[in-house]
Every structure is written in C-alpha cells, then in structure tokens.
Simulated assay, not measured.
Amino acid sequence: MKKFILIAFMACNSLATLAQNHWSEVPYLTQSLSDKAIKEVLVSTEGGSIQVSGVEPSQARIEVYVVPNNNQDLTQEELKQRMEEYYTLRITDNNHELHAKAERKHDNTDWRKSVSIGFKIYVPQMVATNLTTAGGSIHLTNLTGEQNFVTSGGSLHVNQVIGKIKGSTSGGSIHVTNSQQYIELTTSGGSITASNCTGTIKLATSGGSLKLNQLKGDIDASTSGGSVNGDDISGKLLASTSGGSIDLTALACNLEGATSSGSIHVQMREMGKYIKLNTSAGHIDVQLPQQKGLDLNLKGSRVNAAINGSFDGRQEKDRIEGKLNGGGALIEAYASNGSVNVKFD
C-alpha cells in the first residue's frame, strides 16, 4: 500500500516562484496513478467539486485544487499555513482502490479562513466510483462501471458513461448526455437536461424543468414545479409535472403524461400501443399519424377530433368513445377543465 497524509504539500517546485495564484486553475497537488490500475474511486470532500474522467492508463493521475473562499488571493505560504492549521487531506491507494478525503480538523473553523478542496481524477475507463461533496459540482466523463455520487449544493454532469449511474443533488441542476444502461438522477432544486441516452432512465426534480432529447428506452421523468419538454423519444415514456405544461414532439413510444396545472401538447412520429394523457387545469392537443385502427377514449369540456374513416362508438360535444377503423392502439385523454383536440397527419 502506498499512503500519503498531506496537510500542506505543493504540487511542483514551479509554484514556489508564484507570490499569488488562482488556485482553481493550478493544482495544489498532482500525483501519478499510471502504475496503479485503479478500478474503484472513493472521494469525500466538504466544500469542493469532484471530477472523474476515463483516460489511457499512462495518463492516470489525481489533481487536488484548493480555492480560498471569499475571493481571497493568498500567497503560497499563506495557503500552506491555512491548510496546516485547519484541514487534513488524505490520499491512499491499495488493492486497485483510490481513496481521497478532505476534511476540516475542527468543526468551529473560522469561515473567513475556510477553503474549498476539489479533486480532478483521471483513471482507466473501466472504474467504479463513490463520490460525496457537501458544496460542489460532480462531473463524470468517459467511464464504464457502477457510479454512485451525491452533492448537497452543486450540479451534476454526466457524459459518455455506461453502466449503473445513480446520483443526487439537493440544490443544483443535472445534465446527462451520451450515456446508457441504467440512469437514476434526482435533484431537489434544479432543472434536468438529458440527451442522447438509452436504457432505463429515471429523472426527478422537485423544483425545475425537464428537457429530454433523443432518448430511447424505459423513461420515467417527473417534476413537482416545472415544465416537461421532449423531442425524439422512443420506447416507453412516463412524463409528469405538478406545476407546468408538457410539450412532446417526434415521439415513437408508449406514452403516459399527466399535469395538475398545465396544458399537454403531443406530436407522435410513430404510434406505440397506447397514449394516456391527463390534465386538471389545461387543454390537450394530440397530433397522430394516420392509422388503420385506434381505440379512442377522449373527455374534456370540449372534444374536437377530425375523424377520417369508419367509427363505431359515441361522439358528443364533451367526449368521443369508440373504435376508429376497427380499433387498435389506445388513445386516452382527459382534460377536467379544458378541451381535447386530436388531429391526424
């Protein structure tokens, strides 16, 4: 085992020539991991960001960044003294595991002398992670494996990751792109953007909007306080919001959509087995491709459907129920206080 207990250690001799520095741009410490064959990364820090990227084994390394809070510009010696007095930094590698932990020595550290300690970690692509930070963002790029990560006050960024991906933030946005297999991401106070992803995808936010683009698989996307916008989605989609509209285009999927206080707009590129839509305080617009057969169940304050073909059922001002052209895929739409409008292209 190779173990380092680092209280204050500068990354390279060239830093000694600098009286002042932007510590967010220059590593406080750099250590090679090229001969370690790291398979698992475990990181914990109280106030900085964490980035893990897959690279060629020869480029594997860990970089530590120390940023004084309150926009202070410290000299090398001042930063060294602050780290020695208030913080402990531990980095160990053993059995192909990398452990990195930054923490305060004392709970009552003067906030005016506090710093943020972040990590940029470059490891082989096949790696698992377990990451925790109390006040920074988390970035994952070009990885394959099981990824678990949590931040209390930053954003999540996932790109080109394959495997089981599970992350959460209490106060930031989420961006996931070019990833696949199993994705579960949640935030209590930010928006979510997901694009070019496949697999089982679960996205949830308590206070932001959802933007979905080029997704394929079993998708569950929900928000308690924002809108849902989607384009080019196939497979199965469950989209719900308690406080916004739903706007979905170029769909080729089974669809369930619900909102408590907004309208729903859906445009299907190809039909799946069913569409189920519900709103309590808005209207519903559905655009469908020409189909040989549909089962229609439409209810609203007013229902408008340009039916073209044989219809067997009930057609009234506020509802249409029956089989179009012998029946087929289910189209179910309920608007408690708005109209339902269906057209065929």
Rank of each mutant, 00 (worst) to 15 (best):
K2E: 14
K3A: 15
A8K: 02
C12M: 09
S14L: 12
S14W: 13
A19G: 01
Q20V: 10
P27S: 09
L33D: 11
A37T: 09
T45W: 06
E46T: 14
G48E: 09
S49K: 08
I50W: 00
I50R: 03
S53I: 14
Q59W: 03
R61Y: 04
I62L: 12
E63N: 09
P68V: 08
N71Q: 13
T92F: 06
D93P: 05
D93H: 07
N94Q: 05
E97M: 07
L98W: 02
K101C: 11
D110Y: 07
D110G: 07
W111R: 14
W111M: 04
R112P: 00
R112C: 03
S114F: 14
I117S: 04
I117K: 06
G118D: 01
F119S: 02
M126Q: 14
V127C: 15
A128E: 15
N130S: 10
T133I: 11
G135E: 06
L140S: 13
L140V: 08
G145E: 10
E146P: 01
N148E: 02
N159W: 05
N159Y: 05
I165W: 07
S168Q: 10
I174Y: 13
S179T: 09
E184G: 06
T187Y: 09
G190R: 04
I192P: 07
G199E: 02
I201E: 06
T205D: 06
S206C: 12
S209T: 11
K211S: 12
L215A: 05
S224F: 08
G225W: 02
G225T: 04
G226T: 05
V228W: 00
G230I: 00
D232Q: 13
D232N: 15
L238Y: 03
A239I: 12
T249D: 08
Q267A: 13
K273W: 03
Y274R: 00
K276T: 13
S280T: 10
I284F: 01
Q287I: 08
P289I: 07
Q290G: 03
G293S: 07
L294N: 02
R302H: 05
A305G: 05
A305K: 04
N308R: 10
G309K: 12
G309D: 05
F311V: 10
K317E: 11
D318Y: 02
R319L: 12
I320L: 00
E321T: 15
G322R: 11
G322S: 03
L324I: 05
N325K: 06
G326V: 14
G328T: 07
A333P: 07
N341V: 06
